[in-house]
């Protein structure tokens, strides 16, 4: 009896939360992804690095449902996931902080945090937005992330780049995601805010959330990641456990292809 449960648990632990098989995506003549395989384990923090235009954003948008791959399969918890929209991906707990933040400038902070899942209350049989609850929960979420905004009623367009980025992060992290993808989430953040994001990543991972972190701040990867994947020109070129690599190795892997190409031309 207990053995069965243990086996089930072991199998569950070995089943990737997300598995990508042979993902391809083409934009006109550009092959953004040329057959990418990737496993993301439960509670794992995966760093995704690569040169600009390597295909990092495209790959993660495929996982979040923003793009539908031309070829390849996505498995979630071992099951073929048939989602084709961000709404469906979100429904099974996949959240993403997009590189362009995807905020609505003319909606207030609390409204952006709850965009697409606004709490409602019934007034005379009409379902109206529950502003009070949105505000209270928004306050709690932002406090937990050490994010200070002048006012929750402020339109997002009134905020600084770092504040906007923080709000995009808080929105993705707030609803207990099972998979959280962050595409360069710290590029506009100040030191203390970056620290808060790294703490958040560790805390969520300990709670079982699987995380993909794309960043150019390689030193951050060593502080939070379990594993690092390197992409180059639409393919996965290397995969390293964090203990097996260091900064120099990573830099070599990221520019490696380029260095070889340069050598080849010389």
């Amino acid at each position: 009896m207990t053995e069965g449960i243990n086996q089930a648990a072991a199998a569950a632990a070995a089943t990737p939360r997300v598995r990508l098989e042979g993902i391809r995506k083409q934009f006109g003549s550009i092959q953004a992804l040329r057959g990418v395989d990737l496993d993301l384990m439960p509670g794992e923090v995966l760093g995704l690095v690569g040169d600009n235009a390597a295909g990092k954003s495209t790959l993660t948008k495929v996982i979040s449902g923003a793009y539908v791959p031309d070829e390849g399969r996505i498995l979630v918890d071992g099951q073929a996931a048939g989602y084709t929209t961000p709404a469906e991906a979100r429904a099974i707990g996949i959240e993403m902080v997009y590189q362009d933040l995807s905020l609505c400038d003319t909606i207030d902070v609390a409204g952006n945090l709850f965009l697409g899942r606004e709490p409602r209350r019934s007034v005379l049989g009409l379902k109206l937005l529950d502003r009070q609850r949105m505000r209270e929960e928004a306050r709690r979420n932002l406090d937990a992330l050490d994010i200070h905004v002048p006012s929750l009623d402020a339109y997002v367009e009134q905020l600084s780049g770092g504040q906007r980025q923080s709000i995009a992060i808080a929105r993705a992290a707030a609803f207990a995601p099972r998979v959280l993808i962050m595409d360069e989430p710290t590029s506009a953040l100040a030191v203390a805010e970056v620290e808060a994001v790294l703490r958040l990543i560790r805390r969520l991972a300990e709670g079982g959330t699987s995380i993909i972190l794309i960043t150019h701040r390689l030193q951050d990867l060593f502080r939070v990641c379990d594993r690092i994947v390197v992409m180059y020109e639409g393919t996965k070129v290397a995969e390293r456990r964090i203990g097996e690599t260091d900064l120099e190795d990573l830099v070599g892997l990221i520019v490696g292809g380029k260095a070889e190409k340069l050598k080849g031309h010389a």
Partner: peptide, 12 residues
């Protein structure tokens, strides 16, 4: 009206 793609990504 503010950001149609953001709305789509938010599941709207």
């Amino acid at each position: 009206g503010a950001n149609a793609e953001a709305a789509r990504r938010a599941g709207i």
